[in-house]
């Protein structure tokens, strides 16, 4: 794959979400912080999740197995490294907005959380349990957009024209105009950071799970389904709207019925309310009226 070197260079550091950073720092500074509580805050933040997983899986730690969830990462890293990871995520390109995908009232962060919650709703429905690895994969699925947003912004007109006039889906349009789509780029980022292979696949193929070559355990399909259902619910990506191809086999694979999808949408609304209560970091101004005013600059 030939990717614009400018795009590749931007991969190196990711912006973070300051309210989470503050919260985490406050928790870490207490002498007896609990790894479980800390993980429950960190896991809602895609940039910090990415950073601490990257750190954990780096050669420096030389762990024999890949770390694929936040709670383990918190335990392995210890206080000092955590502070570094969180700050690194926090100070680099602090309030930078990923313009290309932005639509008023929607932000990438909220979408990422909703897909992670939806993935857990589906996992509970299908397997009767949740899966921390699935949560990680789901919250990071759009990580490529954080970088690609800049370039989508520059080329927005061209991309939209391909979608509305030539019947392209958004991925095809991104590829044609930018030489790479946000899923592939996310996959490259995951590779660079040494993420476990199935998380990398779930990111790289989250719109085309049918194209995964490796024998898959369903992770990528669940992330795909969760993403599509969130787009329908309107907790969406942004400029890409719903312009993606529906793969019916996703539903067949897990024997899901139409009713299951609709019920999942209802559960998601409730889940998003709970996530707001838990963290208060979704800078939202639409769905839940009782949320306090948020920092607008957090919007993507």
């Amino acid at each position: 794959m030939k990717i614009n070197p400018r795009i590749l260079n931007s991969i190196k550091s990711l912006p973070a979400f300051p309210i989470t950073v503050k919260k985490i720092n406050r928790m870490i500074s207490s002498p007896d912080y609990s790894a479980r509580e800390l993980a429950s805050v960190i896991k809602y933040d895609q940039s910090i999740t990415a950073n601490i997983l990257r750190m954990c899986n780096s050669a420096y730690f030389g762990l024999r197995h890949k770390v694929d969830n936040v709670q383990d990462a918190v335990l392995y890293l210890g206080r000092d490294n955590l502070v570094r990871a969180v700050l690194a995520a926090g100070i680099s390109r602090y309030f930078k907005k990923t313009k290309g995908y932005a639509v008023e009232g929607i932000d990438l962060w909220e979408h990422s959380v909703s897909v992670a919650l939806m993935a857990q709703i589906l996992s509970r429905k299908i397997y009767n349990h949740e899966d921390p690895k699935l949560f990680t994969a789901a919250i990071l699925h759009d990580v490529g957009k954080v970088v690609l947003g800049e370039y989508v912004c520059e080329s927005c007109k061209k991309i939209k024209a391909l979608v509305s006039e030539k019947g392209y889906d958004f991925l095809e349009a991104e590829e044609e105009v930018l030489g790479v789509n946000h899923a592939q780029l996310g996959g490259e980022m995951a590779l660079l950071w040494n993420f476990p292979a199935d998380i990398k696949d779930a990111i790289a193929y989250h719109h085309r799970p049918d194209m995964v070559k490796r024998k898959s355990n369903g992770l990528v399909w669940l992330v795909y389904l969760a993403d599509q259902i969130c787009l329908m619910t309107g907790i969406g990506g942004g400029a890409d709207g719903l312009a993606y191809r529906g793969l019916k086999e996703a539903f067949d694979k897990f024997k899901l019925r139409q009713q299951d999808v609709e019920e999942a949408m209802i559960l998601l609304l409730r889940g998003m309310e709970d996530a707001r209560d838990l963290l208060d970091i979704v800078p939202d101004k639409r769905s839940v009226p009782r949320t306090a005013p948020q920092e607008r600059s957090l919007r993507y």
Binding site: E104, G105, L242, R286, S287, P289
Partner: peptide, 26 residues
């Protein structure tokens, strides 16, 4: 006045503008 997902608002105040964001399939 922001109308969320699965939400309903009514008004008779001329100055009010109702807004609903992010309609997907809704």
């Amino acid at each position: 006045i922001v109308v969320g997902i699965a939400d309903l608002k009514v008004s008779r105040h001329s100055d009010d503008i109702m807004v609903t964001y992010a309609l997907g399939s809704c």
